[in-house]
Design a protein around this nucleic acid. Sequence first.
DNA 1: GTTGAGCGTT
Length: 302
Amino acid sequence: MAEMYIRVAEEENEEPMEIPSEDDGTVLLSTVAAQFPGACGLRYRSPVSQCMRGVRLVEGVLHAPENGWGNLVYVVNYPKGRKMDEIDASSATKIKRGDQKTSDLIVLGLPWKTTEQDLKDYFNTFGEVIMVQVKRDVKTGNSKGFGFVRFAEWEAQGKVMSQRHMIDGRWCDCKLPNSKQGPDEPMRSRKVFVGRCTEDITADELRQFFMQYGEVTDVFIPKPFRAFAFVTFADDQVAASLCGEDLIIKGVSVHISNAEPKHNNTRQMMERAGRFGNGFGGQGFGGNRSNLSRHVFGSGDG
DNA sequence: GTTGAGCGTT
């Protein structure tokens, strides 16, 4: 099938955006989510029944209605029926920190050859880039394979964190750096452990699959293959809701459970082990209370 | 074969 686009909008009467289909005529949920972060499906108004109808979604792949995609406008579904901005707005007021300030994002997995100019050129397509760095060995000047980027706009930062990035031929991840993550609130786990994976299930397929439950911010498959993976969601409640489930992915029954904390930070392990309530009062723990509540599930996502 | 990389000379 030749290149084809379907029309997608956030609301029925808003201006639609054209989204490309795959060669087989299906549309990937991830393609939709690239334009509408957090999307978990599509619906449309049936010309026949005048009712809204859901688009069939199988493992991250959206299938055309019986008579093809046609010229209908498809409306984006969001988890729990809430739009991204609404989620942002509500959590913003909950966290009661007025407007969102941007922070540096770490860019992991850069090709050795990538320069700061390359980074800037790439990220400028998401928003105004106000800082880029490529970290280099001080002696040799060789890239260390990671860097930092900072956007002017919070929206750009959110978008960039919610997807992977092909930069100079390698997939890169952008995350909040360890030094920046949530001193405000201990994070409930947004990450689940996916057991009984088979080797033919790719990270992409996991992302495609889990996207139907909520926005996926990270997928990790340890290499060499060890029959498990980690999936991180933007929303801890989504993660929690899946724990204990057996889900079928590509015909394989995988088991979802809580991701245990990565083993490498004493403070985090203590925090997990149990409330030390007031009993800890002493000194020694770095003093800074906010550090105590730093979340325990690894780098936001990694 | 069921618990994961890498984090910033300010």
